[in-house]
Design a protein around this nucleic acid. Structure first.
Lengths: 230, 230
DNA sequence: GCAAAAGTGTTCTCTCTACACCCATGG
DNA sequence: CCATGGGTGTAGAGAGAACACTTTTGC
């Protein structure tokens, strides 16, 4: 097998910024680093790419290992490569953003990795440049969600409008006018109203909705500006 | 120095998708691959990252080598890592998008790399996954230019409105209404009108404009939707 | 009956879009 | 004087923003 001459190979890792939403707050799944140095510090879930694995594949594998989930919304968003970002050895990291339904997450796996959900506003200090990655991921999610209906990936099959609105408010850290929000959501035609109500959040109860998958896919492009309340 | 155990290092390269605009067409700078295998096929300009170089630094260096230019608009947009994307040896590539003023480009360097400008609509087949990178770069540039005034990076210090409009038309491959275009550009307040005219394009001549740098920076965010003529 | 959250319309403003003619100049 | 590209305004439609009260129901 031929080789390129005089080049220095480095390690390539994938790190996943995993978002979840519990109906109240936007959260991030973090683990305690298992190896020395800086063992037991909070960290993103990551791993090195395998020999016959592409980048997306590695991200999927890593996500599966930590959460037990397949078919998750996963998007590569930036590569980090400062020479000294990992003090152990030169490592390039490709960062992926994942949006999961927090209810489908298997808690058992928690223990193996000492994983915990943190509110995005209360994320502890992380190892290496993971703090930078997290804020870049937040920017990315805001940018993406303003143009595409991706936040539904964070919700269960059935959800209520108040939940959805609160999710947008969490992501953008802004209050949103309820009447305008409902109008835009309905105008998009992506939601199906159910007849049952979720009674857990109030006495009156809020109707359940779910995504009309066909329309969701079709309209993925023309979903501009759910956001703009100042 | 400690190491991670049982991992396999790979090569990491940076590839630059370099855009230019000659007043008529949007163009791409390509080189003939200098080494075997598939020597002399058209390729993006790229290179491996150096030992003490970060990714942005490598991209800057590579761009400098090929174009002789510093301080160029350069943006990382995607990492490519299929196991067999480079048949020689496993290589991850980080793709960067560059926008340069084609007039500042030093032609001498051409010969060393056998570089040539191609209209984006007439790009030849490229090695590896470089075709994919180019179309991803086109998507990225459209997306970015819809939100931010980045296309000015492609223009000389002084330019005319017809040139600018043509550039937008090239990028989006759409005709744009001239009166609406002028109104939006003026409303942005980013342009300074000069008293001289460019007489090269017509008998009447078109006024030169240049960027008001301060306002350009300030308004980089609030520049929405120069684009939308159907 | 009351506390707490859900649900519902209208008006105004502003922005986007469509559209056609005169102007300046070099030859 | 005429061919060529440059430059200019207006009216109508649609989208976004601001804004407050009534409904339901468990306790």
């Amino acid at each position: 097998m031929p080789h390129y001459q005089n080049q220095n190979p480095v390690l390539v890792a994938v790190d996943c910024i995993i978002f979840g939403y519990d109906g109240e707050s936007l959260k991030l799944l973090l683990i305690k680093r298992a190896i020395e140095p800086i063992k037991d510090q909070w960290s993103l879930m990551g791993g090195f790419i395998g020999k016959n694995e592409d980048l997306d594949g590695a991200a999927q594998r890593i996500l599966l290992e930590l959460t037990g989930l397949h078919d998750v919304y996963l998007e590569q968003f930036h590569a980090y490569g400062s020479p000294d970002r990992d003090p152990v050895e030169r490592t390039i990291s490709i960062a992926y953003l994942a949006l999961i339904d927090i209810n489908k997450y298997s808690r058992q796996i928690n223990d193996q990795y000492h994983a915990e959900w943190f509110k995005v506003k209360e994320v502890p200090q992380l190892i290496f440049d993971h703090d930078t990655m997290v804020s870049a991921a937040m920017d990315k999610i805001r940018h993406q969600a303003a143009l595409n209906p991706i936040l539904f990936e964070l919700l269960p099959e059935k959800f209520t409008i108040p939940q959805l609105q609160n999710l947008y408010e969490q992501v953008y850290d802004l209050p949103i006018d309820n009447r305008n929000f409902v109008r835009k959501i309905n105008a998009s035609g992506m939601l199906i109203k159910h007849s049952e109500k979720d009674k857990s959040g109030s006495r009156r109860g809020a109707f359940y909705y779910s995504l009309d998958k066909a329309k969701h896919n079709a309209q993925f492009k023309s979903f501009l500006s759910l956001i703009s309340n100042s």
